[in-house]
């Protein structure tokens, strides 16, 4: 079984983490979408720390010897989900950057060519 000290320790750390997520949310350093994912991980770990029996039950089903290892395992799995979702959003961002860069390059050329056309027309008027 988990010691009370470990339970309280985990809960304390997770509360600090939850507090900092809210802090970063208020400072707009993190999007709601990602903050929610992290808070979800946080809350799941807190619930498991409060009800270690759920873990004992789960660890028996999955054949994990120690419930503490179960906490770490669940935390790791949820972290992997968050990291994977980050890979996806980085890919989407890269696509957007690519499209924007291309548009910028094209617009710059159009403006430049347009300028020349305007200049030529002006010169013709002078003559």
């Amino acid at each position: 079984m988990m010691s009370l000290r470990l339970q309280l320790g985990i809960i304390f750390i997770m509360l600090v983490v939850a507090g900092s997520i809210v802090h970063f949310l208020r400072r707009k350093s993190i999007d709601f979408r990602y903050a929610l994912a992290w808070l979800f991980v946080d809350v799941v770990i807190i619930i498991l720390a409060i009800f270690p029996r759920a873990m004992v039950w789960l660890s028996q089903i999955l054949g994990v010897a120690s419930p503490v290892n179960m906490v770490l395992f669940v935390g790791l799995c949820l972290s992997l989900v968050v990291i994977f979702s980050l890979s996806m959003s980085v890919s989407r961002l890269a696509d957007k950057v690519r499209k924007l860069s291309q548009e910028i390059a094209i617009i710059r050329k159009d403006v430049f060519d347009g300028d020349n056309r305007v200049r030529e027309e002006m010169n013709n008027i002078k003559d």
Binding site: V97, R98, S101, Q102, E103, I104, A105, I106, R108, K109
Partner: peptide, 19 residues
């Protein structure tokens, strides 16, 4: 066309097709 950030060969060619 002058790309503001490096896009690699695929992104560069695509810029041309877009243009």
């Amino acid at each position: 066309l002058n790309l503001p950030v490096n896009l690699g060969i695929g992104g560069a060619v695509q810029t041309g097709y877009r243009y």
